[in-house]
Amino acid sequence: MQETSIIISGFGGQGTLFAGQVLAYAALENNLEVTWIPSYGPEMRGGTAHCTVIISSEPIGSPLVRRPDVAIVMNLPSLDKYEPLVQSHGVLVANASLINRGLERDDLKHIYIPANEIAEEIGMSRLANMVMVGGMLYLKPILSLKAVQASLERHIPDRHRKTLPMNFEAMERGYAFTQEALVQTAS
């Protein structure tokens, strides 16, 4: 498989770093090469957090990219920053709950998911990140939903283990929302 670069960006506390780690674990457990690197600088202390995940079947050089293939943006500042940078014909997954503008570009495969609302329906607002990951996996099926869920099950911290079914549901809802939205647009 070709190298795929993913940037996940949002406010601190939205679970962007963990969402990236879940993808990284799933990549490793599906015999792919992977790097995960967080923002750790003063920008993180200013309240935004992002990570870069690179997945490939070949050894990975740079763990950082300027122009990712995929951006998962959890809030408006992240959309403002990454919309111009996503590769042409790349994938953009936007959190409709916190973003009140459409895209300026028309060359991206994209979806707006009301991730916070879906997470609240499930009963755990912190799962917006997993909803977004689910949506991304539909648009960019580098890993199967099942594979990512299996890795989450292996690596979820023990103190959160009881939330595993809700995590699974969040991913599935994000995946299904994206599927339905795109099928409707197509028809």
């Binding site: 780690q21 990284a24 490793l28 090469e33 992977v34 790097t35 995960w36 690197i37 967080p38 750790y40 763990p63 950082l64």
Partner: peptide
């Protein structure tokens, strides 16, 4: 450097 200290890799 900081990249290598902070990154995760298999």
């Amino acid at each position: 450097d900081g990249n290598m200290g902070q990154m995760m890799e298999p």
